[in-house]
Design a protein around this nucleic acid. Structure first.
Lengths: 187, 187
DNA sequence: ACCTGAACACCGTTCAAGT
DNA sequence: ACCTGAACACCGTTCAAGT
């Protein structure tokens, strides 16, 4: 007989993310997640295929934290808002955020956000045949900075310096966009 | 009585790195490393304090793969050579390279390489009081790209496209340096 | 000084069994 | 349909003991 489920996949992923946020990635264990849900570890395997699948799910959950920016703003403000969202998300989830750089993600949300970036880049004057590459370089630089800031190389830098670096990063990327405007076709 | 040691720390780190390169990070286990050295897992604890320490050691070993570029070249060629070395190292060690972004490193080698970059940036015309920040942004973009390329988001891109992206990245960074030349002091 | 055997706590995962 | 108990292979780590 159908019994009402006490948990679902969304809850599993949410508790897993919360656990990692609070106690670090090495505390993210099946038993730990199960404990938070008042359930035995084995019950989780109805909702995630394995721990690797659990991690993939967390990464997809992370992606929902920077949705496509609201239309109506200038392309500049839209890209700026997106960059701020990414950075804020990294700060909320320091131990899990690096996974974003290590796993290829192709969820509908990710695709939608990328499409929004494409549109903004197009408006900025970047030629259509360069838009995809420019998006890759810009998002890579942004993600690399966010990871360095929260999980690594810049861990003991002051907040003041990190903010200044982030501003400089945005300046670098803005200059790069500018330089692409009106450039001829290339590989 | 002093007996000759059958292994030393360098060997432990080298075998650990080789194991990760060949079979991935999740195969990097104390028993696995020990097996390669013909020794029991417990023997390793004379040379590494813990598995975390082993990973730190591997990261330090990685850093030795991109030493300061040979003097005598122009600053442009020195930075280019360094960037190529970093990228090549990432390709050799795809599963371990991401750790570089996640762990703060302050070995003498790292310091020496950074000093070489500072010197090159100075020669390029970047004002002294901006050199440190510029180095941070440039190396972050480079590492972020290398990680994306070997361990993550760009995993299934063609070699041709990756090479084109790398060229474009170098162009972006060169443009950024150019823009710094003669800029006034800032925070 | 260097390595091993035995032992421990912990982990992910399976499968048959319970409701 | 959903969860659990028992069980397994594996992992990092300790410590006392051997040479």
């Amino acid at each position: 007989m159908a019994r009402p489920a006490r948990i679902d996949r969304t809850q599993v992923l949410a508790e897993a993310l919360a656990l990692a946020d609070e106690h670090g990635l090495e505390s993210l264990t099946m038993a730990g997640v199960a404990g938070r849900l008042g359930v035995t570890p084995m019950a989780l395997y109805r909702y995630v295929a394995s721990k690797a699948d659990l991690l993939d799910g967390i990464v997809e959950l992370l992606l929902t934290e920077f949705p496509p920016p609201a239309p109506g703003l200038t392309w500049r403000k839209r890209l700026g808002a997106l960059a701020s969202n990414v950075r804020a998300s990294a700060r909320r989830h320091p131990s899990v955020f690096p996974l974003l750089l290590e796993r290829p993600v192709a969820t509908p949300e990710a695709r939608q956000t990328r499409a929004a970036v494409y549109a903004a880049l197009g408006e900025s004057g970047v030629p259509q045949d360069r838009v995809a590459q420019v998006e890759r370089l810009v998002s890579t630089a942004l993600l690399g900075f966010a990871v360095s800031e929260v999980a690594g190389r810049f861990r003991d830098h002051s907040r003041r310096q990190l903010d200044a670096d982030f501003d400089a990063l945005e300046g670098m990327l803005a200059g790069f966009l500018q330089a692409q405007v009106g450039v001829e076709t290339s590989g």
